Amino acid sequence: SRSVIRSIIKSSKLNIDHKDYLLDLLNDVKGSKDLKEFHKMLTAILA
């Protein structure tokens, strides 16, 4: 869910600018399909 993804971003080791950017992107995501794609992208970034 959106709140879980937000929590993953906030607890990541990324610097604050990257976190803010990803949180802004997350706010722009519409629909469950796009949310799944965003989660895939985030997982790849944090891997």
Rank of each mutant, 00 (worst) to 15 (best):
L35G: 01
D17R: 15
V4R: 13
D17F: 07
M41F: 09
K30T: 08
K10H: 11
T43E: 08
L26K: 01
N27E: 05
S32K: 12
F38Y: 03
L22R: 00
M41T: 07
L23F: 05
V29P: 03
L35F: 05
Y21F: 10
M41Q: 07
G31F: 05
D24H: 13
S12T: 03
L26R: 02
N15V: 05
A44I: 12
D20W: 10
H18A: 10
R2G: 05
D34I: 04
S32T: 13
Y21T: 06
I5S: 01
K13I: 11
S11A: 13
D28G: 14
K30N: 07
R6E: 15
S3C: 07
L46V: 07
L42R: 00
R6Q: 13
L23W: 03
S7Q: 14
I5Y: 07
H39G: 10
K30C: 06
L25I: 06
L22I: 03
K33Q: 07
N27Q: 13
S7K: 15
I45R: 02
Y21A: 09
H18D: 13
K13C: 06
S3Y: 08
K10W: 06
S3D: 15
K19L: 03
R2E: 08
K19F: 01
D24S: 15
L35R: 03
F38K: 00
D17S: 11
K13A: 11
I45F: 07
S1N: 12
T43D: 09
D17A: 14
Y21W: 09
S12G: 02
T43R: 09
K13R: 10
S3W: 08
D24A: 15
K40D: 08
K40G: 05
H39K: 12
N15Q: 10
H18G: 04
S7F: 09
I45T: 06
S11P: 01
I8Y: 03
K33P: 05
K36I: 12
S12K: 01
S1Q: 11
L46P: 01
L22M: 05
V29R: 04
L14K: 01
R6L: 09
A47K: 11
H18K: 12
D20N: 15
K40F: 06
D24Q: 14
G31E: 06
D28Y: 11
D17Q: 12
G31Y: 07
I8V: 06
K30L: 05
S32P: 14
T43S: 10
A44V: 13
I16C: 05
K36G: 08
K13Q: 11
I16E: 15
H39V: 15
L22A: 03
V29M: 08
N27R: 10
S11V: 05
L35Q: 02
I5R: 02
N15H: 13
K33H: 13
K40R: 11
S7W: 13
A44S: 13
Y21D: 03
I9F: 03
V29H: 04
H39Q: 11
N27L: 07
V29C: 09
L23M: 07
L26W: 01
L42S: 00
A44T: 12
I9S: 00
I45Q: 04
A47S: 09
K33R: 06
L35T: 03
G31D: 10
Y21G: 04
D24M: 14
I8F: 06
V4C: 10
F38C: 02
E37S: 11
D34M: 12
V4A: 13
A47M: 10
I9C: 00
K30V: 10
A44W: 09
S11I: 05
D34G: 15
K10Q: 13
D20S: 14
I5Q: 02
L22K: 00
L22H: 00
T43C: 09
S1A: 12
G31W: 07
S12R: 01
V4H: 11
L42D: 03
L26H: 01
L23N: 04
I9E: 00
I45E: 04
S3R: 04
K33S: 06
N27H: 09
I45L: 10
H39E: 10
F38V: 02
V29K: 05
I16K: 15
I5W: 04
D20K: 13
S12H: 02
E37Q: 12
D17N: 11
L26M: 05
I45W: 10
R2H: 12
K13Y: 04
I8Q: 07
V4W: 09
L25A: 08
S1R: 13
D34W: 06
G31M: 05
I9D: 00
I8R: 07
I9L: 03
Y21V: 04
E37M: 11
I8L: 12
I16F: 08
D20G: 13
D24C: 12
I5F: 06
L25T: 06
F38G: 00
D24T: 14
K33V: 07
K13T: 11
T43H: 09
R2Y: 06
L25Y: 04
N15F: 06
S11W: 07
E37V: 11
R2D: 09
M41G: 03
L35P: 01
I8T: 06
N15A: 13
G31K: 07
K40Y: 07
